[in-house]
Amino acid sequence: MAQPFSELERAAVYRAIYERRDMRHFVPGPIDPGVLARLIDAAHHAPSVGFMQPWRMVRITRPALRDALHGVVERERLKTADAMGTRRDEFMRLKVEGMQQCAEVLVMALMDGRERHVFGRRTLPEMDLASVACAIQNLWLAARAEGLGMGWVSIFDPHDVSQLLQMPAGAKPVAILCLGHVEQFYEAPMLALEGWASRKPLSECVFENSWPAL
């Protein structure tokens, strides 16, 4: 029978899970290249349906390109605010990204040619996206273990980002990831601290044998 990690090792894994935060506030300073390599390798070791490994990562190192990506996000932020109705002003007060302050910006994308992969996707083609999400989570937890913050930015038009990064037809950006040093991690998810939403109780998310009757 497989043996569990030691008590200290288990505690470290759970600590990374519970203390991971979607960070928006960063402090200056580059990320050590060795640490960055470990983080990217952690993402690359994520599980994927049919072992298709659909993630593609683009590291943004040109300041002008980072500025252009930030512009794409800002345009969508305003459109999202307009779609919020009565919560528009509340949304506009939120800090939704840290792209101009973080040390590194990575764009996580789905590869092109995914239709060739049928294993695990014949009836659930969205499993390619689920696999990329696993890679992002690996990166997030590894970053927390390294004492680095990471923020997931999803407020952008995929077509605009694809054009900026010269992605081939069929590829699709799904996340702009901000990585960097932080002064401290939020005590709770930022949107909970801001009163935007709260964590649902497990009783609303975990069922047994069937969906509960309304």
Rank of each mutant, 00 (worst) to 15 (best):
26 F>K: 03
209 N>I: 09
81 A>S: 10
103 A>P: 10
38 R>F: 00
207 F>Q: 07
58 V>G: 00
205 C>T: 08
45 H>E: 04
66 R>E: 07
7 E>I: 14
196 W>L: 11
29 G>E: 06
41 D>H: 08
209 N>M: 07
88 R>Q: 13
45 H>M: 13
147 G>W: 03
134 C>L: 11
156 F>I: 04
179 L>P: 05
208 E>A: 11
27 V>G: 00
16 A>D: 13
156 F>N: 01
210 S>H: 15
133 A>H: 05
63 P>G: 12
52 M>E: 11
145 A>E: 12
82 D>T: 05
199 R>I: 10
149 G>I: 09
85 G>H: 02
208 E>L: 10
83 A>D: 12
2 A>W: 04
55 W>M: 14
168 P>D: 02
134 C>I: 07
70 H>V: 11
209 N>V: 14
30 P>A: 15
7 E>A: 15
100 Q>N: 14
7 E>D: 14
200 K>F: 03
146 E>N: 04
23 M>P: 04
191 L>Y: 14
43 A>E: 07
13 V>S: 01
150 M>D: 00
206 V>L: 15
96 V>C: 11
73 V>L: 03
83 A>M: 14
39 L>H: 07
49 V>H: 00
149 G>L: 11
55 W>T: 13
210 S>Y: 11
23 M>D: 02
32 D>N: 13
214 L>W: 08
160 D>P: 05
144 R>M: 11
173 P>R: 08
214 L>D: 11
12 A>D: 15
138 N>V: 02
100 Q>M: 13
101 Q>H: 15
121 R>G: 01
49 V>Q: 01
160 D>L: 14
33 P>I: 09
40 I>L: 15
30 P>C: 10
119 F>Q: 12
119 F>R: 08
126 E>C: 07
200 K>T: 05
19 E>D: 15
56 R>Y: 02
85 G>N: 03
175 A>D: 10
6 S>E: 01
22 D>E: 15
35 V>A: 10
132 V>L: 07
176 I>K: 04
186 Y>M: 06
114 R>Y: 09
21 R>T: 10
133 A>F: 02
189 P>G: 09
19 E>M: 13
113 G>I: 09
131 S>R: 06
109 A>H: 08
61 T>P: 01
198 S>V: 10
112 D>C: 02
43 A>S: 12
40 I>C: 05
91 F>A: 09
102 C>V: 13
21 R>H: 11
64 A>V: 08
184 Q>R: 14
157 D>C: 12
43 A>W: 05
179 L>D: 01
54 P>Q: 03
6 S>V: 00
101 Q>R: 14
120 G>H: 10
181 H>Q: 13
72 V>R: 07
127 M>N: 15
125 P>F: 06
75 R>H: 14
129 L>S: 12
164 L>F: 01
169 A>I: 03
18 Y>N: 12
206 V>E: 06
151 G>K: 05
152 W>S: 08
99 M>D: 05
